[in-house]
Every structure is written in structure tokens, then in C-alpha cells.
Computed example of a mutant assay.
Amino acid sequence: MKHKLEADGIELFFGARKILGDIYLKCETGSITGLLARNGEGKTCLMNIIYGSLKANSSSVRFDDVTISNAYKRPALLTYLPQFNFIPPSFRLKRIFEDFEIPYDGFEAFFPEFKDRQNVKIKKLSGGHRRLVEVYVTIKSKAQFVMLDEPFSHVMPLHIEKLKTLLEIEKQHKGFLITDHMYHQIITTSDNLYVLTEGKIHLTKSTDDIEKLGYARF
């Protein structure tokens, strides 16, 4: 059975400036929904509104047609990877994987360079490895829906390809909403793709649509 997340009628103003206007977006389990937007267009604001950590001027966020405005209180329903590092720097990898209830050996299998490093504090890792850990545990979390904000930034190309493989595996029973400035990665990863521009959102069908909306040229 497919489950769906819908964000509907979302409007956000900062003072007199409209950031988002009458947004509708749908994400379903079994698929990866991509979101492209330039800096300042409001994509992170949109994710925070869906998550419930930012109050919009108007919004309706529904899971299987049930309105839930504070999804951040429901980790089994929705989890969110922010742009910034969110795991406390003093945590050891063992503690992180235990907290997320995720087996460490599965992580080792994907990324052998982490073999026997369970007792390393995350602050001791390089920036790319630290981000890799955060992305992995978020993707593998128990949540039905997962939002990923800039998951590929600062991650080496080989690891990006492995994360994309992981997303394909995990989407069999989850829904993903993903955004990144590395738009080629988003385009090749996504089953459905939205472009957010000038406060409005557009469901795209091809790279021609993306060009017409002025996001990128191919």
C-alpha cells in the first residue's frame, strides 16, 4: 500500500515579501521526489514548514489525508536532514548508530573505510565523512517519509553513487523528498521533480521544462 505526504496551500511572507505562494507538493512511498531551487527561493523554508518547525502564513500538511502540523514530533512518520551538521560532535559512531537503531555492520558493508571505527567521535572525521554518516543514518531511519536537504554536498563522488544506490533500496518502503544544488544528481535520482522559482512550484516532465523555468541549461 502506498502512503502519501501532501503539502498544500502553503504561503509564507517575510514582512511584505512573499517567499512561497499557494504551494502544492506531493511525495509518495516507493518514489523519490526531487526539488530544485536557487538560493533564496525558499526550498529550506518549505521543508521546515512540512516538518512543522516553521510556521507559515497558511498551510496544510497531510499524511494519507490526515492533517499533521507538527510532524517533527512524529519521528516514525517523518524525519529531516538539515543542511547543517546536526549530530553532537562528541558522539561516537557506536552511540549514533545505537540511537538510530541501525546496525553498524550494514554501514561498514557500504563504506568499508569505516570498518572498526565505531569508537571514533564524529568530530574527528573529515567534513565529507561526517556528512556521510548523517546522510546514511537519516536515510536508514525508521521514518515513513524522509526529507534530505543538501545530502550530496561535501560528499565525494564515489560516496554519492553509493548513497544513490541506498536511496533506490530504501524507497521500496519509504518516500523521499530531496534537494541539492548538485542538480544533475537530483535529476538522475528522482522519480518526480519539482522546480521552485519566484515563490511558485512547478512539476516538471523534462529537462526542457527546467530550462524554460530558467533553473539550468543543458
Rank of each mutant, 00 (worst) to 15 (best):
K140F: 01
T44C: 04
L167D: 03
Q144I: 09
L125E: 03
A216T: 07
I160C: 09
K124S: 14
K73P: 10
L81R: 02
I50W: 00
S53M: 05
L132I: 02
H3Q: 08
E198F: 02
N48E: 14
K124W: 07
Y215M: 14
R17I: 00
K205Q: 13
G30F: 14
D116N: 10
Y136G: 00
S59I: 05
Y24D: 10
L203F: 04
E150I: 06
E11K: 11
F14R: 07
R38A: 11
H184G: 11
H3T: 07
L213M: 04
Y183L: 03
E41I: 03
L166W: 12
A7F: 05
M147Q: 00
D191F: 13
D22G: 09
H159S: 13
R117T: 09
D8L: 13
I187F: 10
Q144K: 12
Q185G: 14
G40L: 02
G199N: 05
T179L: 01
Y136L: 02
T138V: 14
E101V: 06
E211Y: 14
I169R: 15
S60Q: 12
L77T: 15
I169P: 08
T189A: 14
R217Y: 08
I87Y: 02
F107N: 00
F63N: 05
D99I: 14
P103K: 05
K174R: 10
K73L: 15
S141L: 14
G52E: 08
R74V: 03
R74N: 09
D208K: 14
T79C: 07
E6P: 00
A76K: 15
R38K: 13
S90L: 12
E113W: 06
H202E: 10
I186H: 11
Y51F: 12
A76C: 12
V146H: 10
G175I: 08
Y104R: 01
F14I: 03
Y24G: 08
T44V: 07
E98M: 13
E168G: 09
H154N: 13
N70G: 08
S60H: 09
I87L: 13
E41C: 06
L93V: 00
C45S: 15
K140C: 15
Y24V: 00
I10P: 02
E134R: 05
L196E: 04
L20M: 04
E161Q: 12
A109R: 12
S53C: 02
K94M: 10
K73A: 14
G52K: 01
R92L: 12
K140A: 08
C27I: 15
I139Y: 04
Y183M: 05
E41Q: 04
S59L: 04
A16D: 15
Q185F: 15
L81Q: 04
D64I: 04
S190T: 02
V120F: 06
A16F: 11
Y24L: 09
D105W: 11
E150S: 09
F107Q: 04
G214A: 03
E150N: 10
L125S: 01
E161T: 01
F91Y: 07
E41H: 06
R95H: 13
F152T: 04
N119V: 00
K174E: 07
I201P: 03
C45Y: 15
K18W: 00
D65N: 14
F110C: 09
I201F: 11
M156N: 13
P157F: 03
F114A: 04
Y104S: 01
K212M: 11
A7K: 02
G175F: 07
K200D: 05
H202S: 09
L158Q: 11
P75I: 06
I169C: 12
L93N: 03
R74A: 03
F218R: 01
